[in-house]
Amino acid sequence: MKRGEALLGCAGAAGAFAVCETLSRTGLVPSADLPPASEVLARAVELGGQAAFLDGVAATLQAWAGGLGLACALAVPLGLLLGSVPAANTAARVLIEFLRPVPSVALIPLVSLLLGSGTATTVTLVTYAAVWPILFNTVYGMGETDPVAKDTLRAFGFGRFAVVLRVALPSAAPFIAAGIRISAATALILAVATEILAGFGEGLGIFVAQAGTATDGTRDVLAGVVWAGLLGLVINSLLVGAERRLFPWTPDHRARRA
């Protein structure tokens, strides 16, 4: 990000902060419904010093990482298969188009019923939600493989499998990475949402759910939300940075460099 962009971003955040603070301080919105932003932020910082809260965040991140990792392990090989064998793609299409529109959140009660309300449920739902963007981006990226690049490898005597491994996979890699980044955000939503609905145990979502039932818990709920947002922001920045380092040849990154 350029320096000007960073400054504008900070200005936007400061503006939103000021609006929330003003709404609450002037009494336009009762402070029980919307505590002043400064208090929420102070509470969020305070939570960062509490071991119990941090353990909860760690538990959420663990479920998030487990689910996302599992989704990658499933979706990338499957995407490679569907992307390189047209018959497999056609055969799988109906099933995929049926499963994909089912909102993952709607599956929370079902999976909870089957697996109880522990880590297994969270990981399962995170995996389910995270599989789709990775799978679709992998298949799409495979389809975008340059025919000239494929012909080049074939002309040097390499076979079908080598073409998939040495050309299709690396040229699809930036698409796969973008899919993983999209999935990472969805996975975080699912991890927190599942915990909120489960309501007990350990995790950021549990913290938010329990604060929601306490009297005057709004401040804690919002502080939890700030943490969730922060996690999302950090994860996204890390992944964007990794993509830039790993795939310096993509037109986006080359333009940025120039």
Binding site: D146, V148, A149, R154, F156, G157, R166, V167, W249
Partner: peptide, 20 residues
């Protein structure tokens, strides 16, 4: 099939060379 000991140069070098 593609014969052994064949060298090929395509017009579009930017697509034929592997950027990674």
């Amino acid at each position: 099939r593609v014969p052994d000991r064949l060298g090929v140069v395509f017009q579009d070098y930017s697509r034929s060379l592997f950027p990674w």
